[in-house]
């Protein structure tokens, strides 16, 4: 074996960590950066809604269904005279929560099960994966609706239903990448040197699978926003008078013959948020892809 000269050692040490390289590439990707800025604005709007927008619950019967651009109500008013901007801004809170929380919880549960199944293999793997196959056999929207129908309406059931829907696919993705990593030589080496399974998982497996799983989860967040609003749209999510984009879409739908474009607003917000998550997911994917250099 050749001895390393000091200069070569220097080069080896300077190799950036995968996460740093990913972040550097992501910063250069204008589209993902733009998506992150827009998403940031929506999160800002959600967090500071009570300070930047009027009260979303009080409306005046005299100011019902005002068009977009009305003085005092720049985005118009809804069917009972409540300010649309206030409802959209406050609605972002529930919509963002129902878009991200189920994915986060499913990521913990599904990711955990996936790592377990992939790392252990054998009977544990068979048991977990075959159970997931059963849940995977239900079309996502259908399963979410069925669970909501069974456990009742409301934000909690929406969150539970979506979490149940996302777990099987996250288990599958995590299991696939974990199995691939598990058979790598460096895991074998770590095991041979007497490192415990837990430490191997934390230090060797997780850093190598987290990118792929996150890309997938960001894509799921986009789906989650759409599904959560969809459940509310069907009347299975947030009950009125709460502000939530899907539920606003549902109630404004009745008024499209009077104010056609008002109903477009909450849907537009769902659309924009969902596009952002998808673009970020795409950006992450090409940022962790080792094949293209940069």
């Amino acid at each position: 074996m050749n001895e390393l000269s000091p200069i070569q050692v220097e080069e080896v040490v300077r190799t950036p960590r995968p996460s740093q390289r990913m972040w550097r590439r992501l910063k250069r990707d204008k589209v993902s950066l733009g998506a992150m800025v827009v998403l940031g604005l929506i999160v800002f709007m959600a967090m500071f809604a009570p300070w930047i927008a009027p009260d979303p619950y009080t409306g005046s019967a005299l100011a019902r269904l005002k068009p977009i651009g009305t003085p005092d109500h720049w985005l118009g008013t809804d069917e009972i005279g409540r300010d649309m901007w206030a409802r959209l801004a406050h609605g972002a809170r529930l919509s963002l929560i129902s878009g991200t929380l189920p994915v986060a919880v499913a990521l913990l549960i599904g990711g955990g099960l996936g790592v377990l199944a992939g790392y252990r293999g054998g009977l544990v793997n068979t048991l977990i994966m075959r159970t997931m196959d059963v849940f995977y056999a239900f079309p996502a929207v259908l399963l979410a609706i069925a669970v909501c129908a069974v456990i009742g309406t409301g934000i909690t059931s929406t969150l539970i239903a979506l979490t149940i829907v996302f777990i099987p696919s996250l288990v599958r993705v995590t299991e696939t990448v974990t199995t691939r990593v598990r058979n790598m030589d460096y895991i074998e080496a770590a095991r041979a040197s007497g490192v415990s399974d837990f430490e191997i998982i934390i230090h060797q497996v997780l850093p190598n699978i987290v990118g792929t799983v996150l890309v997938y989860a960001a894509g799921l967040a986009s789906l989650s926003i759409i599904l959560a609003a969809g459940l509310s749209f069907l009347g299975l999510g947030m009950p009125p008078p709460n502000a939530e984009w899907g539920q606003m879409l549902n109630s404004l739908r009745q008024s499209i013959y009077i104010q056609p474009w008002l109903a477009a607003l909450p849907g537009l917000m769902i659309f924009i948020t969902s596009v952002c998550f998808n673009l970020i997911s795409d950006g992450l994917r090409s940022a962790i892809d080792v094949k293209d250099n940069g």
Partner: peptide, 14 residues
């Protein structure tokens, strides 16, 4: 990207 991100019930209303 628009196609995979659009809430189709909203598109229907539009």
């Amino acid at each position: 990207i628009a196609g995979v991100s659009v809430p189709h019930y909203w598109l229907a209303i539009l």
